[in-house]
Every structure is written in C-alpha cells, then in structure tokens.
Nucleic acid binder design. Structure first.
Length: 507
RNA sequence: GGCCCAUUCGUCUAUCGGUUAGGACGUAAGAUUUUCAUUCUUAAAAGAGGAGUUCGACUCUCCUAUGGGCUACCA
C-alpha cells in the first residue's frame, strides 16, 4: 500500500503551546515535507470546560514564527473543512451510534457523582475502580436495560454518555514506528467514554479516530502520553471496519525538565530562567510566561535545537537549516527515551545562528535598541560595529552591553582595570599618546596603528601597558576589539575628547 | 496499586555482535590576542545491576533497579 503521506498536528486550545508541542508539530511537518505529503492542523476543542480564549491564535502564530507551514487547517481551509472539531460536532454522534448498533458501544447513565462515590468506595477498600467488564453488571448502562427503558431515559432528558465496550481478555498487537511491536491485554483497559450528551461533543478518542479516518491521515505522530490509549484506538478502527486504512503510529518520547524529576513544565521555565513556550503568553489570570521569540532567540535556532532533542540524523553536523532537516528526517532515527532539555545548549545554538546572520541584518535589529538609548547613527556604522562584536554575543540584546562605548563615551571606569593599568608611567604615556594622535590627520586604523607602534617602539614603551591604559581611557573597561578599530569608528575628535576626559577624571 | 514505555559521558547523542565506545553543549588546562571574546589544542567524563545466548555483547533474551507516561463525562 502506497498512499499519500498525510499527517496532522492536533493541539487542544487549552493554553499556550508548550515547546514539546512545537517539537511534535515540527516532526510531523518534517515528515510530511520529506515525503512530499500534506501537513494538516486540526484544532481539538472537544473539551468545552478547558477552552482558553486566545490559545488557538497563539498556536497558529507560534507555528508561523517557527516556519512550520500548514497545508490544510483552520486558517487555510481544505477539502475536509472544517478543521475545528467543535464545528464538526454533528459528524461524531452518527459514528457513536454506529458503534452502538454494532454492539461495540453502549449508553451509560451513571452521573458523575455516582461514579465519584463508586471510586471513593473502592479506594476506601484499597482497590482501584476501573470501568470495565468486571463491573458492567452493576452499572446503569444500556447493556443491562430493555430497549424501552433506554428510550424512556433518553426521552426524559437524562444525561448519558456512550462508552466503548472493551473486549475481555483479548490481546491487541500494535506496531509503533518508533517502539516496534507492543502487545496489550484488553482486560487491563477500561470502557472509555466516546461521546457526552451533556455538551453534544465526542471525547478525544472518538473525534480523533473519526477525523483521522475522514481526513485520510496516513501517519499519526504524537507524544508518548498517547501510547496507553493506542489499543483503544486500534479497536476503534476495527469496530468501524477501517483497519485496512488505519494510519501508522509513531509515539514520540517526552521532553524532560533540565534537572530533577518529571516532564518539562511551565513552572520550570519560571524557576530556572528559560522559556518553555515559543512566544510570550499572557494568561487571563495576569500570569505572564516568557517566550523564545521575546527572549531573543531566532526561530531557526529554536527549531534546530528542538529538532535535535530526541532525533539525530547520525552525522556529526549540529547546525541544520529547515531544508536540511527535511531531507535528513526519518522516524527510525527518533530516540526511544525522554530527552532532558538543556537551556545552555539552546543558547549555544542561538549564538551560532547569530554569527551566521549578515551584519547588515543584525544592524537592523540593533538600530531600534540604539534609538532606545537616544542614539541615532548611520546604519553603515552600526553594521560595522555589529561585525566586530557579534562573535561575543548570544542575543541581539547583548549588543548594547558589548558596544555602547562605540556610540557614547564611558561615564565610569572599571575599578579592576583601573587598578591594573592606570598606574606608574601609564597616565603620562596616555597623555603623550594624546599628543601623538592629535597630530595624526589620517585616522584610519591602518594609519593610527602604524603611527602608534612607531612611537612605542621608538620610546621602548611596553605595548601591553600602554594599550591597556589607552583602552581604559577610551572604553572605560578592559574589553572590546582592536583599539585602532575603535578609534577609527568613533573618530579623531571623540578619541581626543575621551582621552582628555580620562586624564582629567582618572588623574 | 495496575498497565505500558524506556535506560551509553553531568546534558543531547553516534554505535544497528568484533571500535582505543565517536561528536556536540557544559567544565578544566594551555596556546593565540594590546584587553575581553573568538579561535585552536588538550583533559576529565559513559554502556544501571545481575543472569543467560554467543567464539565474542553497549548492541539479543530474561530478571531486578531506576526513570517516564497512562490509569477523567481532559486532551
């Protein structure tokens, strides 16, 4: 069977999209592109209670920022529209009814309170309550009722749910593209709810299978948290008679927190100082969660880092463009165990992408920052400065701290550098250097370097001492690129002014 | 508790029975540099434990341990 590759990313709009979700979307996207297939976005909003306004928009914007393009979805439309499950509600009931008709499902009239009481009762006895074949006999379900009673209850407006009738003691053999064969005995499973009359909405399990079938999904690539419900899904495909076109499954390992136990959660980011969301999120409760985008990460770096968390092409290369990821991607190379996220490596990826960016592009990003500091300079100058400092930066936001002295004179002098270099003959030599530079007409770095070197050699001055005290006077601290480079950029007048100021302030 | 999945340096990982177990992040040392950073070199750093199978096991099987997930009228 060689069918067209069609995959979907099916998030639930219950909050901002977590970076683990972005990775799932990414792997789906890479797989689709690699095989020339389709990538669909389906919104699974079948839980009316957990719906969060703005979450869907957030998901869409996140994927867009990441460069993950959608072929069919809520915004794009497509042959299987609508792609929002709440807009497909009338579809699901008929399928649930089909299962009732075939005997694979039944009505259950137990109230939530009754079930809670039952669970509490079991727990008190130290047992776990499972809604399965063992207890069906004593529950208020259609299997124990006459057709008249069922009809009467429904007609009277009792709320009901439709549950899957999980077979007893049957082995379900499943194949996962990442984990291989998995076998589960159905007796360990329970009768999951498929449809709720209270809000006329299906649960995930029903909606998911029906939609994947209707939308002709060929591969389901999702998080490992779904592995336990895979037998149910297999059985559902079988009950509907869709086994022959059932998609293949791949369950992705989870993302774990950098330290400690458990999977990566929103709290970790706040606590350990890194984003867990692609974009900044402002919750209705006023809570704000930082995002990779707002923290200054380039989407390419974020994607590159995420792609390698749980997948590896087996080559020693670390930096990959989206195109390269698409060409190299394969589910066989996805790891089986959870991956701990390392914020330090995320930063490293960003620094790599930062230095790969053209200086001019970075200058455009830096200009608004400079304007914020009241500096309006020529873009050519900014471009040149960026070229000199970008190898020391991780984010564009590091630029100001690394180059403010290129645009404005230092207001203070670093104490440590002062103690180290502003001593002995050095102040006098700097004063002498001021005189030398005042007489130089051509302030190009080649020329000033030549002149100053001649002078130091002639006077037999120690270069390290002179240059460092010179740097302290101009920069205010012990850092930065070549002094002659700096002088050329700030110009002769500014150079002399700063020397005068340093001589006056430092004594 | 039950069920399922997993287990190579601190972290991400390569290895698909025979390797000095490789790379990257981070860490440390050294070199380069007028300073800082970069860059370069080097170092420390791993097959959870125990049984098998095999001439040979990180690689296959089983057990244990540990980690993770699921166990809702949530996804």
């Amino acid at each position: 069977m060689n069918r067209r590759v069609r995959v979907r990313f099916a998030p639930s709009p219950t909050g901002p999209l977590h970076m683990g979700g972005v990775r799932t979307a990414l792997y789906n996207y890479l797989f689709a592109r690699k095989h020339g297939g389709d990538f669909l976005l389906r919104i699974e909003d079948t839980d009316s209670h957990r719906f969060v306004p703005g979450a869907e928009e957030y998901i869409l914007e996140s994927l867009k920022w990441c460069g993950i393009t959608i072929d069919e979805g809520v915004a794009e439309g497509g042959p299987h529209a609508p792609y929002r499950q709440s807009e497909r509600r009338e579809i699901y009931l008929q399928y649930a009814m089909q299962l009732i008709g075939s005997g694979d499902a039944y009505y259950a009239f137990d109230s939530a309170e009754e079930l809670d009481a039952l669970r509490a009762e079991y727990e008190a006895r130290g047992e776990m309550f499972a809604y399965n074949f063992a207890v069906r006999g004593k529950l208020k379900i259609s299997l124990n009722m006459s057709a008249e009673e069922i009809k009467r209850r429904i007609d009277q407006g009792e709320t009901w749910v439709i549950r899957f009738k999980m077979p007893e003691n049957e082995l379900v053999e499943m194949d996962d593209l990442i984990r291989g064969r998995v076998v589960v005995n159905t007796s360990t499973l329970d009768d999951k709810v498929l449809y709720k009359s209270a809000d006329s909405l299906p649960t995930y399990h029903l909606a998911n299978i029906v939609d994947d079938h209707l939308m002709e999904i060929s591969h389901v690539i999702r998080g490992e948290e779904w592995l336990p419900s895979l037998p149910l899904h297999y059985l559902l495909y079988r009950a509907f008679g869709w086994s022959s076109t059932q998609p293949e499954f791949a369950h992705l390992p989870l993302l774990l927190k950098p330290t400690g136990k458990g999977k990566l959660s929103k709290r970790d980011g706040d606590k350990m100082g890194f984003p867990v969301f692609p974009l900044l999120w402002k919750g209705a409760d006023g809570e704000v969660s930082r995002g990779y985008r707002e923290d200054g990460y380039f989407p390419e770096a974020f994607i590159n880092m995420l792609a390698l968390l749980g997948w590896n092409p087996g080559v020693e290369q670390e930096i990959f463009s989206m195109e390269e990821l698409i060409n190299l991607f394969s589910l066989e190379k996805v790891g089986k165990s959870g991956s701990r996220f390392d914020p330090e490596k995320a930063k490293w990826f960003n620094s790599q992408y930062l230095r790969m960016k053209p200086d001019e592009e970075l200058a455009e990003l830096y200009m608004p920052v400079l304007e914020g500091h009241g500096i309006n300079t020529d873009k050519a100058v900014v471009t040149r400065v960026v070229g000199l400092i970008k190898e020391r930066a991780t984010f564009v936001s590091d630029f100001w701290g690394l180059s403010s002295y290129m645009f404005t004179a230092p207001t203070e002098y670093e104490a440590k550098a002062k103690d180290k270099f502003w001593k002995g003959e050095n102040p006098a030599r700097v004063a002498e250097l001021r005189g030398i530079l005042a007489g130089v007409a051509d302030f190009s770095k080649e020329n000033t370097e030549h002149v100053v070197h001649e002078w130091m050699v002639a006077k037999e001055y120690p270069m390290g001492q002179v240059m460092n005290s010179f740097r302290l006077a101009i920069v205010g601290q012990s850092m930065g690129p070549s002094m002659f480079e700096i002088c050329e950029i700030i110009g002769k007048d500014e150079t002399l002014a700063r020397l005068d100021k340093a001589l006056a302030v430092l004594g």
